[in-house]
Amino acid sequence: MLTATDVHVSDYPTVEAVRWIGETLERETGGRLRLRLYHSGQLGREAEAIDMARFGAIDFARVYSGALNNAFPLTRALCLPYAFESVAHMRRAMDGEVGRAVLDGFGGRGLVGLAIYDSGARCFYNARRPIHVPADLAGMKIRVPVSDIFIRMLRLFGANATPLSLGEVYSGMETHMIDGAENNIRSFHSSRHFEAARYWSQSEHSYAPDVLLLSRRTWDALAPGDRELVRETARASVQVMRQAWDASEAAAREQVLAAGIDTNDVDMDAFRRAAAPLLAEYRRDPRIDALYARIRAAA
């Protein structure tokens, strides 16, 4: 019995894609390979999921690329501010040599990179006011993933960056420990954060994707034919995820608008200028700069 973990809820597109992997593996092997999926953070946070997969305590882990930045430097290129122009741009880059390079980069530290999933356009939401320019974030405590890039980016925008796990955000806003967060609208809806944060600002400062990982111990224990089946099924699951993502993202947007959320566009150029020093610093690393150049070429 293989195991998989995801912090998102049962009907989230990444969860549905991994569930499809399990169903396909079971069907193709006559039940010899089966998958038990733990969703909704049942096995803990993403940082814990990465460690559990590395040491063989679980088999599959779907995690956000920002959570991988410190241990796997190539993932930093995916998280740089305004690296991607759109979902279509991100998908082109991930389907090509950029995605292959990132997935290959997991090989040396106990993991196998299987697939790259969408994570949508990350934008700001909060309980205090609309955000039009970076100065509007001044004094706000904004949750970010546990990632140096996001922490430093938010500081450049003028916010008080507060790293928390996704599961702590709702209570953090309810108790006023934080004023808001940044994430995609699908997660804004599924986590019910729109009940506590009534302002959504379409900053699109990141399209950093998710990654599906497999424990290297599990990979090594599989027969060669099963390895190929797992790899090909994971690749095929990307289209399953994208179809679910596109439909559910549109539905989530409709539902948060119907709930009366105040939405606004932002001054993108002002945010790009504020983030420029961070981008320049990370591009001093030749490996990051080379991947970033390929990402931009795919625009």
Results as ranks from 00 to 15, higher is better:
T3E: 09
T5Y: 06
H205M: 07
L279E: 04
L103I: 05
L68K: 06
L222A: 02
A236K: 02
P130M: 01
D265Q: 15
T263W: 11
P130E: 02
G139L: 09
A276V: 08
S190F: 06
V238I: 09
A259F: 11
A280E: 15
M153F: 10
E46G: 02
D118A: 14
P163F: 03
R36K: 13
Y199A: 13
D262V: 14
S237D: 07
V133N: 15
D59H: 14
H176G: 12
M177Q: 15
I142S: 05
L78H: 01
V7Y: 04
R34H: 12
Y12E: 11
I185A: 12
P73C: 13
R76Q: 09
G41K: 02
Q255C: 13
Y12I: 01
E232Q: 07
A274R: 06
N126I: 00
Y82G: 03
I116S: 08
R19D: 12
A197D: 08
S190W: 03
V146E: 10
I131M: 06
W200S: 03
E46P: 03
D210A: 12
E182T: 08
F124C: 03
V7I: 12
D104F: 12
Y170S: 13
A299K: 06
G110E: 01
V112K: 09
L212V: 14
Y82W: 07
M52Y: 09
V169E: 09
A250G: 14
S165V: 13
C79L: 04
M52K: 05
I149H: 01
I58P: 06
I295K: 00
R216S: 11
M90N: 08
P145V: 07
G96P: 05
R92Q: 01
V9E: 14
Q255K: 15
Y282I: 05
E182V: 09
P145K: 04
S86D: 10
D136K: 02
H205K: 06
S203M: 13
A270N: 09
T14S: 12
A17T: 06
D285A: 10
P130I: 00
M1P: 09
A297R: 07
E228S: 04
L156R: 11
R100G: 14
F157G: 00
Q239L: 11
F72N: 02
A88L: 12
H89L: 08
S187E: 14
A274C: 08
T14H: 13
R242I: 15
N183A: 14
S147L: 01
D267Y: 09
S187R: 02
E48S: 05
A71W: 14
S190I: 01
F157W: 10
Y38G: 11
D210M: 12
C123V: 13
G31R: 00
P13Q: 03
D95M: 09
A258F: 07
G225I: 02
A236Q: 04
W219H: 08
F150A: 15
I185E: 07
H193I: 10
R62Y: 09
A138E: 14
P13R: 03
H176Y: 10
A61D: 03
A135F: 12
D104R: 11
E48C: 07
Q42F: 15
G120K: 08
F188M: 00
T3W: 10
N70I: 11
G31D: 02
V144D: 02
F188Q: 00
R186H: 15
Y64E: 13
L74D: 00
M90C: 13
R152F: 04
Y82E: 01
N70C: 15
P277Y: 08
D269E: 14
E46A: 04
D11H: 10
E174Y: 13
H205F: 03
A293G: 06
